[in-house]
Write a protein that binds this DNA or RNA. Sequence first.
DNA 1: GTCTATATCTAGATAGAC
DNA 2: GTCTATCTAGATATAGAC
Lengths: 209, 209
Amino acid sequence: MNVQDANSTAELSTPRRGKREQIVQAAVKTFLEHGYAGTSMNKVAEAAGVIKATIYSHFKDKQQLFIAIIEEMTIKKVAIDFTNPEPILSLEPDEFIDVLTGKFCVLMQDPEYHALFRLLVGESERFPELAEIYVRTVILRGMGLASKYFEVHKELNIEDPQAMAHICAGSFISLMVWQQVLGGKNIMTLEVGRVRETLKALLRGQRQP
Amino acid sequence: MNVQDANSTAELSTPRRGKREQIVQAAVKTFLEHGYAGTSMNKVAEAAGVIKATIYSHFKDKQQLFIAIIEEMTIKKVAIDFTNPEPILSLEPDEFIDVLTGKFCVLMQDPEYHALFRLLVGESERFPELAEIYVRTVILRGMGLASKYFEVHKELNIEDPQAMAHICAGSFISLMVWQQVLGGKNIMTLEVGRVRETLKALLRGQRQP
DNA sequence: GTCTATATCTAGATAGAC
DNA sequence: GTCTATCTAGATATAGAC
């Protein structure tokens, strides 16, 4: 019954990536969709097209599978968002806000990111290590970048660059939370562009020529 | 065996509030601690000191119990935070930010609120009605108040009061999320006061005397 | 490593006596 | 409404053949 055994070379419905990779992909999908407690090893096995025992030969138990999956995902998402360390520091303030907004819009349109956020927040008390990885790699890194900008650009007269970076980041991310994560985009109609322009105006106000 | 029957009048370990109230309190505690899927009717029954069947005589099933509990909790939390509609509109900008900050600090120090937030976010895809109630009653109401302030205070030259209100609220709430909900207060050391003062500075910059 | 088969437990939910 | 008792399904996890 199992035609695709061991080392067949060619094209198959779920191609030759090894069972482990199949399990990982299925686990990502299932955990993101149903949460930790809502995901059963049966569901994962079924979605992966393997038998349950196979999962246990690759991962010690459900917890370890979950941690491995989410940790990897969190780090992967960051890699996408923070690569190309373009010469951001040399931008004009308006351009800088535009770039920030652009990076944010990527997150805003990524349902997988929203699901990851739901999961990290929902499980943050039971899996604090994962929440910490997220804060470290996503939040602190993103804020560090913006913070550096406000620190360097003395003409903007920002007394507390870190707090200012937090205000920018917080404005955008909270918009994502209300509209996409919590699904309130129909009852809370505030466009990203309006936040962007208001931030620009605030920065102009600080400027002393 | 059940000494505290029907209409006894006096002091008992879990006093005379009726089984329903016992169930509600136990359910709140258990759901907040273990999440929806992580909570079993057995756990709730045990925590409430009743037998499982008793729960089913008050609530149709687990979903209905969950919805009833969370809906009530969400609304109750708002009641606390938005009562006393003090004459906020007549405050000076700095005072206004101080009041906002004060209200926010209450949330910042309320572990039950953080747990509720975790639950609402974590279950927002499976219980969108609850997420919507939260956005409507907490977020939109809070922002509406701030938005009105910026609308009225023309001297602040805020072109988009709604966006500005969102920036203020988003700065504060995202701080709560990183530090309390996700537990990152040790790796992300930004005090509320610094955000508060930076917001004040930004408003001063907009002002045209 | 991968499967078959199974052990063990706990889940949500209900029937029926009182 | 509340309890005892129980049904049935599905959970995590493993033993043992290949």
